[in-house]
Simulated assay, not measured.
Amino acid sequence: MRDGNSTIPDGPAEASGPGIAGEPGAVHVIVGAESTRIVLSGEVDADLGAELQEATAEAEQIGLPIEVDAHHVTFMDSSGVAFLARLSIRSQHRVRMIRVPPHVKFLLEVTRIGELLDVVESDDEADFQPVGE
């Protein structure tokens, strides 16, 4: 990793990579036959606050076990951590995190939110059957 003061032939570092010139965040709730899957992508930050609250309310109302797919998360701040804590507290079942990238795992460990969730290393997508398909 280098900063804007790095001396390389092409000049200072450019803003690129996860969390710097990242993609906008998105939240999708997919209702399955046996669980609700919340798919997070891009930058999960304060800009997604309203969508994260809506996803929490929707998943809570459905009442099925909740899985959070974080595979495409490029950045997460305290808004994302608060979302996961809120989900774990409100859910009737223990929340599962699937396909968690290293930077999100780090946040789960540092904040100890990971103790409230089940972090699963792999996910068999064939097990998840969306309702209506």
Rank of each mutant, 00 (worst) to 15 (best):
Val119Phe: 01
Asp3Phe: 08
Ala46Ile: 13
Leu64Asn: 03
Ala55Val: 06
Leu52Gln: 06
Gln92Asp: 11
His93Ala: 03
Pro9Lys: 09
Glu58Trp: 08
Thr111Asp: 13
Val120Met: 12
Ile62Asn: 10
Pro101Arg: 09
Gly19Phe: 03
Ala126Met: 08
Ala13Thr: 14
Leu84Lys: 04
Ser122Met: 11
Val100Phe: 00
Val100Lys: 07
Phe128Asp: 00
Gly114Phe: 06
Glu34Asn: 15
Asp45Gly: 05
Leu116Thr: 07
Gln129Ser: 10
Val95Phe: 08
Glu54Cys: 08
Leu64Tyr: 11
Ala82Phe: 08
Ser91Phe: 10
Ile98Gln: 09
Leu116Pro: 04
Met1Tyr: 11
Glu58Ile: 11
Ser41Ala: 15
Thr36Asn: 11
His103Phe: 01
Ala50Met: 12
Ser88Thr: 11
Ala15Phe: 14
Asn5Val: 07
Asn5Ser: 15
Met76Trp: 02
Leu116Trp: 03
Val29Arg: 04
Thr36Arg: 10
Leu108Cys: 11
Phe83Trp: 09
Phe75Val: 03
Asp3Pro: 01
Val95Arg: 04
Phe83Lys: 08
Asp45Ala: 04
Arg90Trp: 10
Glu67Gly: 07
Ala126Trp: 00
Ser16Leu: 14
Arg86Pro: 00
Gly80Asp: 02
Gly11Leu: 04
Arg99Val: 11
Thr111Met: 11
Glu43Thr: 03
Asp47Leu: 04
Lys105His: 13
Thr56Pro: 02
Phe106Met: 15
Pro65Asn: 02
Phe83Met: 06
Ser88Val: 00
Ala50Tyr: 09
Val27Asp: 04
Gln129Phe: 03
Ile62Tyr: 02
Val68Thr: 05
Ile8Trp: 09
Ser79Leu: 02
Gly32Arg: 06
Leu48Gly: 01
Thr56Phe: 04
Pro65Gly: 02
